[in-house]
Each structure stands twice: as structure tokens, then as C-alpha cells.
Design a protein around this nucleic acid. Structure first.
Length: 580
DNA sequence: TCAGTTCGCGCG
DNA sequence: AAAGCGCGCGAACTGA
């Protein structure tokens, strides 16, 4: 067991803390009374460094002078090592301790370094076992840091901090040896932004949300009645609360819905949208669609979302997993802000605080641009370089129509073609994708013809696909160097897609990290990020400037990697998340 | 009864 | 041979 000092009881806290001022690397862990930095409290701050015992600082016992010394120390330029840094950063933030210097996050480093040989997970214990060969003793999950602390708790707390320091000593050279320094810098720098997004949260217009809930509940009941008229032998029973129970059939059971459909002449293998697409004109299928739509809105969004409103701030503080997807994209939970319906009725319920404005910004066709860069498709690169409209170009190339005569319908179809075929969608898939997503009906023959002509037009894309097809890679990388190990059974589509999606994510993360600096002089902060879209909340007086900064920061965030293809971002002021 | 899996669908 | 990819979540279903 490493030596440690429990402060301020055991020694002179002020002197020991100030003594760390010249250390270039500090490993920091915290213990708290819970998981929510807005409602729970910071209790211990453990600081490990190379030359002194671990300081285990009981924040509740610290005099103002000691707290001030901590604030000064943690704001300095030393590298700060954490496991899941955003957690600690936000608890420190709740005590007005603002972290300075570069971050090294062992959990993120672990994910970047992952290979099929391990680590099997990314907890501190798993990382320690894999990278250091040290087994950490099991800690009690229920460890309570709100009362008197046991010696054992202090020892564990101290050990976790010292393990961080050891991990970095191994992981930092490993990142370098594996060509992961560029992406590690992007990720570590982005962590501050992710922490900030979670801490700020986003405001919601509760009245409007409730109104929308009521309207949708009414639509749900109507759809339920419609659908039940096809079922027969069912009874709807209202209860005391005005809710209804249907006896005889459960419309949420796909097994039962399958029977209902069969009774009405719709014979399908399953009840998915795909299987039902050929029957979509039948009234029973239309009713089912209406019913499911309303059910999804209610159970997926309208009912659960209010439960996430934080009691302290009245805002929604979602959790972002910085490397949530294997591609490198972020994922989001509690609630998942990345799947809020696009419908303006939903989006207009997300609003800036009084006196503030939103700036909504998104990249234009970032994945297509990345695919152009990765494949070096000359025609695509030229089009993007000259600010051309790629969808219009594709429409022209696959229909043989002159560019200036392309109809809106043709351009819509080309959108489906561009987004679908770049990732190996088949003719059948393209057909239904075009119908569902862009409202464009095409025959299977047309879809096949578009597919053929697409690959004739974009020879670079064809070559890129062909080379992957000829020798499916077991390892590939995004343009920043993020590494992917592909399983033997990984399909072609995933092989094409992963580095493209990942590169786009890398660029967005680079932008997020830079924004923490470029926005620092004005009253503005990031409140949500949805893959290729960044939402900022800014004081009204600073909103115009924030929009300019946001656009410029996003567009320049890819320069280092997108050497042949420019990035374009649109940013505009808004009084809600609903686009104008 | 309950944890784990599957289906279906919201988003980019 | 043929194939869009990546997520999270609620409800139903499955199996012990």
C-alpha cells in the first residue's frame, strides 16, 4: 500500500498542497456522496504525484485557505490524470474549482488502445489488471462518503489515485507507439466540453411539453380505436383514472398484431415497417402505423422526459458517453438527446434561458465529404471544392439530365442514392430508403439502374469499395488515426462506414474542444451535440458573435485531416431548437 | 419472478 | 451471395 496523508487531520494541508505546485503531472480522483454533481457533494479529493505521498483531502474539513490553495493548484498547467475525467471535473466545478492544464483520461486512453487482446472492460480495475498486471481489491459498491470515513475507504481512495499515475506512465507511450497521439489529443481536449455540456444541461418548456403530451394522448386513443375495429371480440375498459385497458388483444404485442394483420388479409413474416411497406396503402396497416407512431412518442419521449428534469436546475442534464459507439461517435442517455424527434412540435420545447439565445449549427454533408476525402474520388472532390451541390450533381449523372434541369424530385432521389450507396446499400434497400426517408418512389429496376450509374460516375468510390472488397481489412483507421479492429465476420458495409463515421466524429470532437477556448471570452456555452450538430446557448448580446465563432471553429476543425475537401457548417440564431 | 434477449423505431 | 452504418429505449417475450 502506498503511503498517503489524510488532510487536514494528519499534517499541514496548506504546506503539502502548495508543495505540489512544481509537479508536472498530477493524478486526481474524487469521492462523492453520489453520482449527480448538481445534487450530491464532493467529499474527498485525492492527488497523486511522483515525488510525494498521495494527498487524501477531506474537502468538508478544509479551511477556506486550504480550499483556495487547492483551487490554485488545480487551475495550473500541470497534466491532470483522471479515470472518466468528466465526472471529477463536474464535481470540482460544483465547488468552483476550475481545472487547468491538459487532461489525460485513462478510460478514454483505454478505449483508444483497445485491441482484441484487451482490456476486457474500461473500469479502473480492468485497466489496472490489463496494463499494469495489478489486481485491485474489490471496493464496496455501497461505499458511503457522507459520514465518518473508515481507514479502509481512505486507503482505497489513495490507491486509486496512485494507480492513475502508473497507468499514464504506461499508456502515454503506448498511445505514441500505436499512432494514436492525434486522436488522443482530440479526445482528451474534448472531455472538458462534454463535462460542460452535461453540467449546463438544457432548458425545456414544460407547459408546451405537457400540451403536446395531451394532444398525442388523444391521437393515440383515436388510433387505438381505429385499429381495434379490425380486431373484433375486444372490449375497451376505462378505469378510475381515465386510462383504458383493452381486453382481448394487446396492440403492443407483435405476435398478436401479426394475427390481426393476417385476419385482414395482410400476410407478412413480421410486423416491421419493411415487411409492411408493400401493404402501406391498406387501411389496417395505416391504422397500425398511426398507433405505433403515437405509442412511440408517448412511451419513448413524452412520458419519460419530464422525469429527467433536475430538481436543482430545472434543466435536463443528459449523460454523454464520449466514445459510446465503436466508430468513435458519442452516445447519449438519460435522456438520449440524440433521438429527440425532428418534428418542430418537439424541438420547439427545448429553449434558451431567459435573456439568452440558441445558436444552431450543423455540418453540411460531413460524411459524404469525408468519404470523398478517404476515397479520393476526383469528381466529388472537385464538386465540393467549387461549392457544388453534390445531390444535384448525382441526380444529373444518374439520370442523364443537364444540371440546370434537375427537378426537386430528382434531387431528393439523388440524396437517397448518395447517402445509401456510399455504404453499400443494395437496390432493394435503396428503393425502400428512398421511399421512407425522402418520399421518392422508385421501382427496383430504377434503383438498380441508379446504382450502376452511380458507380460509373464516381469511379473513386468504386475503387475504394473494390479494394476493401478484394481484401477486407482486419484493421483500419479514421483520418485522425483512430483505430478499428474488425471481426472476421464484419460486413462490407461496416468496413466502408466505420472510418467515415469515425472521422466525422473526430472532427466534431475537435471542434467541441476548440470551442471551450474560442467561446471563453463571451457568455456562451455548448448545451447539446447531436453527431454533426452543435447547439450553443449564448447571452443575447453575444449571440451574433457566438454564431460567427461557432461556424469558423467547426469549419476549421477538420483542416488538418481533410486536406482535399473543404468543410462547410451553417450556424444561425434561434429562439428554440426548432429550425427556422 | 426476474434478468437477458429481441423487436421495432426515434435520431444522425 | 448479398448486404447501408452507428446508437438507446420501451415493451414484449424467453427461459430457468
Amino acid at each position: 500500500m502506498n503511503s498517503y496523508k489524510y488532510l487536514p487531520d494528519d499534517d499541514n494541508a496548506l504546506e503539502l498542497i502548495n508543495g505540489l505546485a512544481s509537479e508536472k503531472v498530477l493524478a486526481i480522483d474524487t469521492e462523492t456522496t453520489g453520482l449527480d454533481p448538481l445534487n450530491d457533494r464532493l467529499r474527498l479529493i485525492q492527488i497523486a504525484s511522483f515525488n510525494t505521498p498521495v494527498l487524501v483531502i477531506d474537502y468538508w474539513k478544509c479551511e477556506p485557505g486550504v480550499k483556495e490553495a487547492l483551487r490554485t493548484l488545480l487551475s495550473n498547467d500541470a497534466v491532470k490524470v483522471f479515470q472518466n475525467a468528466k465526472f471529477d471535473i463536474n464535481f470540482l466545478k460544483s465547488e468552483k474549482i476550475v481545472l487547468g492544464g491538459p487532461i489525460f483520461d485513462t478510460m478514454i486512453a483505454g478505449r483508444l488502445l483497445w485491441s482484441p487482446s484487451g482490456p476486457p472492460g474500461f473500469s479502473l480495475a480492468a485497466l489496472s489488471e490489463f496494463f499494469l498486471g495489478e489486481t485491485l481489491p474489490k471496493e464496496e459498491q455501497t461505499s458511503d462518503f457522507s459520514g465518518d470515513l473508515r481507514k479502509e475507504q481512505l486507503e482505497y481512495a489513495a490507491r486509486d489515485a496512485s494507480v492513475l499515475l502508473e497507468l499514464r506512465s504506461i499508456m502515454a507511450p503506448a498511445l505514441k507507439a500505436n499512432g494514436l497521439v492525434d486522436i488522443a489529443k482530440i479526445e482528451f481536449n474534448c472531455t472538458r466540453a462534454v463535462a460542460d455540456i452535461e453540467y449546463r444541461g438544457i432548458a425545456i418548456d414544460r407547459n408546451n411539453w405537457e400540451k403536446l403530451t395531451e394532444v398525442t394522448r388523444a391521437a393515440h386513443e383515436t388510433a387505438e380505436k381505429d385499429l381495434l375495429s379490425y380486431a373484433g371480440n375486444t372490449v375497451v375498459q376505462p378505469d378510475f383514472f381515465g386510462n383504458t385497458t383493452t381486453v382481448g388483444i394487446n396492440l403492443n404485442s407483435n405476435q398478436q398484431v401479426l394475427e390481426l394483420l393476417a385476419k385482414n388479409g395482410v400476410n407478412v413474416p413480421d410486423t416491421s415497417k419493411y415487411s409492411l411497406s408493400q401493404y402501406k396503402e391498406k387501411p389496417v396497416v395505416k391504422s397500425l402505423h398511426e398507433y405505433r407512431k403515437a405509442s412511440k412518442m408517448l412511451s419513448g419521449f413524452l412520458d419519460p422526459l419530464p422525469t429527467f428534469i433536475n430538481s436543482k436546475t430545472g434543466r435536463i442534464h443528459a449523460h454523454y458517453s464520449q466514445i459510446g459507439a465503436y466508430s468513435g461517435r458519442m452516445s447519449c442517455t438519460g435522456p438520449n438527446m440524440q433521438q429527440i424527434p425532428r418534428d418542430n412540435e418537439f424541438r420547439k420545447c427545448f429553449i434558451p434561458a431567459p435573456g439568452k439565445m440558441f445558436i444552431l449549427a450543423d455540418y453540411s454533408q460531413i460524411e459524404l465529404r469525408v468519404a470523398a476525402q478517404i476515397s479520393h474520388d476526383e469528381r466529388m472532390i472537385e464538386a465540393y471544392r467549387h461549392g457544388g451541390d453534390l445531390h444535384r450533381l448525382t441526380a444529373s449523372l444518374i439520370t442523364g439530365t443537364p444540371l440546370n434541369q434537375i427537378t426537386k424530385q430528382q434531387r431528393q432521389a439523388a440524396k437517397a442514392v448518395n447517402f445509401g450507396l456510399i455504404f453499400a446499400m443494395g437496390a432493394r434497400g435503396l428503393q425502400s430508403y428512398a421511399g421512407d426517408t425522402y418520399g421518392v418512389e422508385m421501382t427496383l429496376d430504377e434503383a438498380e439502374a441508379f446504382r450502376d450509374r452511380y458507380f460509373l460516375a464516381y469511379k473513386g468510390i468504386k475503387k475504394w469499395h473494390d479494394s476493401i472488397k478484394a481484401k477486407p481489412p482486419r484493421v483500419s483507421r479514421s483520418l485522425t488515426g483512430r483505430r478499428y479492429f474488425h471481426r472476421e465476420d464484419t460486413g462490407l458495409a461496416a468496413l466502408y462506414n466505420t472510418p467515415v463515421q469515425g472521422t466525422a466524429a473526430d472532427i466534431v470532437k475537435n471542434a467541441l474542444g476548440k470551442l471551450m477556448d474560442t467561446l471563453s471570452d463571451i457568455d456562451a456555452g455548448i448545451v447539446a451535440v447531436v453527431h454533426d450538430e452543435i447547439l450553443i446557448e449564448a447571452a443575447e448580446k453575444d449571440a451574433e458573435e457566438a454564431a460567427v465563432i461557432l461556424k469558423n471553429t467547426m469549419e476549421s476543425a477538420g483542416e488538418q485531416f481533410m486536406v482535399d475537401v473543404p468543410l462547410v457548417a451553417d450556424a444561425h440564431l434561434a429562439s428554440s431548437w426548432a429550425e427556422k
